[in-house]
Nucleic acid binder design. Sequence first.
DNA 1: CGAATTGAGTTTTTT
DNA 2: ACTCAATTCG
Length: 708
Amino acid sequence: MNREALLDGLNPQQRDALLHTDGALLVIAGAGSGKTRVITHKYAYLVREKRLSPSSILTVTFTNKAAEEMKGRIASLLSRDLKDCWIGTFHSQCMRILRREIQVLGYRPEFVVYDEDDQHSLIRHILKELKIYEALYRGVVSRINSLKASMVTPEEFLASGDGFGFDEKLAKVYVIYQDELRRCNALDFDDLILLTVRLFRDHPDVLRRYRERFSYILVDEFQDINSAQYELVKLLALGHRNISAVGDDDQSIYRFRGAEVANIYRFEEDFPDAKVIKLEQNYRSTQNILDVSGSVISRNPGRKAKQLWTERGRGEHVNFYWLPTEEEEAKYVAKTIKDIYLKGVYNYGDMAVLYRINLQSRAVEVALKREGVPYRVVGGVSFFERKEVKDIVSYLRLSLNQHDNVSLRRVINTPHRGIGSATLNKIEHVSRKNDLSLFEAIRRVCRTKASSQTVLEKLEAFLRLLSELSALKGRPAPEAIEYIVELTGYSEGLEDQRLQSLSELTASAEGMSVEEFLERVSLFTRLDEPVPEDAVSLMTIHAAKGLEFPVTFIIGLEEGVLPYFKSSDNEEEICEERRLFYVGLTRTKDLLYLTGARKRRVLSRRQRQEPSRFLSDIPKRCCQWIEKDPCGTVAGNGVDGKGRSSPRDEALYYAFPYKTGCRVRHPKWGIGVVRDCYGEGDDRKVYVNFPGVGVKRLALKFAQLERV
DNA sequence: CGAATTGAGTTTTTT
DNA sequence: ACTCAATTCG
């Protein structure tokens, strides 16, 4: 693709963003404003026109999925493979750098990455050792994580404390935690970022190398980066200052894990010469949806003002349904989904149900099942969080590193081999006293015969197992998994479903070595799991970020649910909840349904709920408010409820009964695939590709197309 | 050491 | 309501 083609179809602001390649650039990209398009085209432009090699453009995304998508789109723009490119999440890029460089920080390059679960068990273990009430671990984990996100070292935190109370204990836990990670040659998620920052700060020669290597830096979702990530970007960019930061402060929804919107404002201070471009033309939603979401988000103070607009028409009114119970709410959602589907305009795959917390999916799932509507739940307990999968992964880790204490604790008695808590305590004791890893401690116990004969035999058997596992280094992962299952007798007495996970695990490891597989697994998340056939998507609003759906339901619009009750006391958190609602609203292309329930089960009690405060931010003219009282009568107010075609008929008029990719039958040309649709009302046209005939442009009004 | 029972806490969101 | 973990008993 040449220069013209890359600029083609970009609006003036998008073009500016693409062409500004010298020095810092901040792109404030409103929802649905073609942000990804700008990034991918800019990348292609840098390669094509500025002759940069893909290996010299560092591109950071928020999720693995976003990275993959971006890679694919860029590859097709450039019509070439992107080998040796640097497109990925902060965590994966840091991992890649640390694999090469971490030795100067005193870790070995085969380090493993501990996920949340591993982190929890390690911290609980430390609390136990320190005789601190273990149930506090959640709070401790989150405090430590936020310290790490803002780059406060254990030593600094210790020094900053006043020497009493909980913080002092917390500092102690933090010190031990960090120490223990190092011993296990393990990093947690935050370490990946933190250590890379430290690497660059403390080793100017290394920093210089990477500054030279990356001559351009692109950062997506800039509003969601934490201070450590900001620091990392800054370190790399401060040499040449060739950086594009793209984000939307209104869509910052990860404060709870250390993201700070303020970073997007800091950028202009740290790069005072930065050009700032706002993308305000929206290519996704109808004007009505923009009005609704705009009036909601405008209540937040201190944001960068935006005026989103669209060339699409006004579109449909938003509907708010206030239903007696959560069951009725779910039923209403399921029925409406089915209705819409039966009208033939939208497929199930075009629709999504969004909610604040995963728990809310339950009722909707029940109702959808009852209606026979296919659905998929995004999130929930993911494949890689299943117990049996984590067990096998622990064995794999141990095969590479026998000093991985967290993995060892996990599997030492799984499956049962008669090594219980008494024995384990003894081993822990030996390990602490002699400053040994658990593995070494077991060896010492065996060598010095410091236990009963039966226990010794069991421990020796376990040691033999570990030494056999160490032969798995560099082997193909599927083979290693099967070997582990066989050697440990793991599958004995396992339920079918769990056996199933094991074979899925083996299948997913296809073509990778043990090392590669572990690397993939540790950064894999729920969002990355495959997309099935035509099904309604159910997910949290968080999970829906970056996605769009022609038809969107946002459920549970009640005080306590959205905004969530845990956030209710703090103004900044309410703002974040409002942004969350905004993100949900702006996922919608055509039809938006909001619902809430007057009564809901909250922690086993039926509770009376009030409509969400955010609803009152929506202008009356945009939203149709319909209440169903417990007797079943329906009352509407708000905009012209009577005397006009129902919203759904109107949708039929504006929307396309076919979408790109769907198959249709034409009386003359037979079956073809829809390539594109455009126009409004009676002027709607579709391009259809008929195999053997070619692409035909057809007027929807006249062509007698039939969906296949 | 392991199974069973009791009891507490729990439900935000994710790399 | 439900899960997960500590405690207790065999």
